[in-house]
Nucleic acid binder design. Structure first.
Lengths: 208, 208
DNA sequence: GCCCTACAGTAACAAAAGTTACGAATTTAG
DNA sequence: CTAAATTCGTAACTTTTGTTACTGTAGGGC
């Protein structure tokens, strides 16, 4: 069996289910920036994240983006789950934030396991719960907070994936994620720097 | 058996499940404005809406509100579901928009039925899906749209619950739901009236 | 070296939204 | 009927966010 399946899921799934995952799951390795799910796409498999980080976002017709949340190892995308069971098209876009490894589970299995394994059922419901909570937090951010607070929160959130809280990104990238303009991001970052909360370098932001 | 359970749920649940709902469910009648769920509350039962409309909203620490969506008859609150299964406290507030009737299902039953009835399982998953989609639409609105568009959409959404597309409400109420100020709502409504899209009267707005 | 591109800083301005203040109209309570 | 409260309109102003435009600078490829 794949070592990565065990280390990430052995504490929640029973041996038999782990075996099944190992059997039917198709391991997929993606590079940073690879697109995993497009909006409007029909989904036939559900991803379990073994390693890496996946960025999940919303897009409107004009192509504007908004970051919804990041998926980390041991998690799955409840949006995908939701679209699978309802045989609806995907409403989100998923892109690998860093190099990542996934196991793809065919829908039929996913549904069969819900009756068969209590641990799987719990996992599925927990995923729904966690994702709903994340989406609610996203709503809180855009509805109740101003751009400077959203920006700072975004940076702290993102810092977890980098060494030394040193985020490798560009102002334009941040602007896309928060759905604002590059100039606004630069302006607010400069302000945060003045307040000694961050340090700016080219292509990198250091958090204090 | 209660006639209302049958008319709303007979097409999706089998006879046996309907009987069980009738047996264990506690019917609850609420008046317009009654609070059904508070933020931070532990939930021990899940509501099936038989009649009426329930307003589901988010609140931040300072007491600011934001409308998430309306529940109509034949629907359930996936947020509550989610909090039930995860034994977490509620993250939302629910208030009766108009006089409504609900059946409260104890959590134990809700979980048992997931293994027992395929139709129930589908209902639960569909509810999750629908709620996720609604929340995504809410995100679209606040992230991608300006206040005037949000306002118009809100009015059209709300008009469904009223005769003649004549909405009985105050500007202040709208402001709470959209998390903005009364003055902004008045200003934009006046503008919409000039554009002949609505007509304003005291305590009421008529849509064209 | 040089050219090109991506990235960041900044100014000046525009638009959207939020705030304060006040008055008028209407409804409600006593 | 009168006083108080609610609702709405509007003006004047501030803050926040978005837009356009132009600069300099760093780094890669030749």
């Amino acid at each position: 069996m794949l070592e990565e399946i065990k280390t990430n899921y052995a504490h929640i799934f029973e041996e038999e289910l782990l075996e099944e995952i190992n059997e039917v799951g198709i391991v997929k390795k993606v590079k940073s920036g690879d697109e995993l799910i497009r909006i409007g796409q029909y989904l036939t498999a559900m991803p379990l994240l073994l390693d890496g980080v996946i960025k999940v976002m919303r897009e409107d017709k004009e192509g504007f983006e908004l970051l919804l949340y990041f998926l980390e190892k041991g998690e799955t995308c409840a949006m995908t789950l939701s679209c699978c069971t309802a045989t609806a098209v995907s409403e989100i876009r998923a892109v690998a934030e860093i190099d990542s490894t996934l196991v793809m589970i065919p829908i039929e299995k996913m549904e069969a396991w819900i009756s068969k394994y209590k641990s799987w059922r719990n996992f599925v419901f927990d995923s729904y719960h966690n994702r709903l909570m994340e989406v609610l937090e996203t709503i809180d951010n855009i509805a109740f907070k101003k751009m400077d607070q959203r920006l700072l929160k975004y940076l702290h959130n993102k810092a977890k994936f980098y060494e030394n809280s040193e985020i490798k990104t560009t102002h334009q990238e941040i602007a896309y994620d928060l759905h604002t303009s590059r100039v606004v991001v630069s302006r607010l970052l400069k302000q945060l720097e003045k307040e000694k909360r961050i340090a700016l370098q080219r292509n990198s932001i250091k958090l204090f």
